[in-house]
Computed example of a mutant assay.
Amino acid sequence: MSPQAAPAAEPASPAAGSPLLVLNNIEVIYDEVILVLRGLSLSVPEGKIVALLGSNGAGKSTTLKAVSGLLPSERGEISSGSVTFEGRDVTRMDAPDRVKNGMSLCMEGRHVFPHLTVADNLIAGAYTRRDKAEQIELVYEFFPKLADMRNRTAGYLSGGEQQMLAIGRALMAKPRLLMLDEPSLGLAPLLVTEIFGQIARLNAEIGLTVLVIEQNARRALEVAHHGYIMEQGRIVLEGSSTELQENPDVKEFYLGVGGEGGRKSYREVKHYKRRKRWL
């Protein structure tokens, strides 16, 4: 079955089972006038990895900020639609309360505390938890490099090590939903493979639900169960990871295979809108 364009007015159902997170027809505006998300709907089933793909400016990071409650800090707001987590409407819930309820965001650019040690960075992520020792051991189990560097100052870590630390810090809140914003950004290919391998392992071994946004579509679809493609603030295509990897438009414009002359950037293709069958 070919993936179909998602209807804007209804939340999608990517897999059987109860969805942990549902975004239903949400619109987001900044400064009361700039419309960024345009009736976006998606769902994330419990225990699955869902990838949200798209180019720069598509609205991916805004989507995560809408889910995690960070829009007010940037003069943004959800003007219509709803965000539901575990069947509860959290559209107007404050960000700290969302963390307490099991939602954790690892932001783009890592944002570790550079003057603190690795261990202190991790402890800072567990401010909502009493079982800090148990959680930090879990993080060290999945990221043994962090255990070896627990007393090192975070600002002196490499980009890949800081990304592991950022993910580890997000895990310290013991989330039911882990959201990752461009975890491969600025990393060498081997490190990207390692990071996504650990994401898959977290899902497989402890059942962690993951929503990951990425420009590296190939890596994201290798570990995801389901994917959405986003452009200009709306979902334009969805399907299982296999369906998306086999879709000719996705191959050409996101995976870099197919078409004449190899990989093409849609910004460089004059007939882009005509070629993309979902537009």
Rank of each mutant, 00 (worst) to 15 (best):
Q4N: 12
A6V: 11
A8P: 11
E10P: 10
E10G: 10
E10H: 14
A12L: 08
P14T: 15
A16F: 06
P19K: 07
N25L: 05
I26V: 02
V28G: 11
V28P: 06
I29C: 12
D31K: 10
D31T: 06
V33P: 01
I34H: 03
V36P: 06
P45R: 10
E46D: 03
K48H: 05
I49T: 07
S55E: 04
S55N: 06
G57H: 01
A58R: 11
G59W: 03
K60H: 02
S61K: 03
L64A: 11
K65T: 12
G69Q: 12
L70R: 09
L71A: 00
P72S: 08
S73L: 07
S73P: 05
E74I: 13
R75N: 11
G76S: 07
E77T: 06
I78Y: 05
S79C: 05
S80Y: 02
S82L: 04
S82A: 15
F85A: 01
E86V: 07
R88V: 13
D89I: 03
T91D: 03
T91W: 06
M93A: 10
M93Q: 14
D94K: 13
A95K: 11
P96K: 05
D97Q: 13
R98H: 11
K100V: 12
C106T: 07
E108W: 01
H111G: 02
H111E: 13
H111V: 14
V118T: 08
A119C: 04
N121P: 03
N121E: 14
I123D: 11
G125A: 12
A126P: 04
T128L: 11
T128A: 13
R130K: 09
R130D: 10
R130T: 08
D131N: 03
D131L: 00
K132M: 08
A133D: 13
I136P: 11
I136K: 03
E137V: 04
E137N: 07
L138Q: 00
V139H: 04
Y140F: 13
F143W: 01
P144T: 00
P144E: 00
L146D: 01
D148K: 12
N151K: 12
A154R: 04
G155L: 00
G155A: 08
S158I: 05
G159Y: 02
E161N: 12
Q162M: 14
I167M: 08
I167K: 03
G168H: 03
A173L: 08
A173V: 08
K174V: 13
L177I: 10
D181C: 07
E182Y: 02
S184L: 10
G186T: 00
G186H: 05
L190G: 04
L191M: 14
L191R: 13
T193M: 06
T193C: 04
E194Y: 05
E194N: 01
R201T: 07
L202M: 01
L202E: 09
G207E: 04
N216M: 02
A217I: 01
A217W: 13
R218A: 15
R219N: 07
R219C: 09
E222L: 00
R234G: 09
V236G: 02
E238K: 03
E238W: 07
G239N: 07
L244Y: 00
Q245C: 13
D249F: 10
V250I: 09
K251L: 04
E252R: 15
E252H: 14
G256L: 00
E260C: 02
E260T: 15
G262K: 09
R263F: 02
Y266I: 14
R267K: 12
H271G: 13
H271K: 14
R277T: 14
W278V: 03
L279S: 11
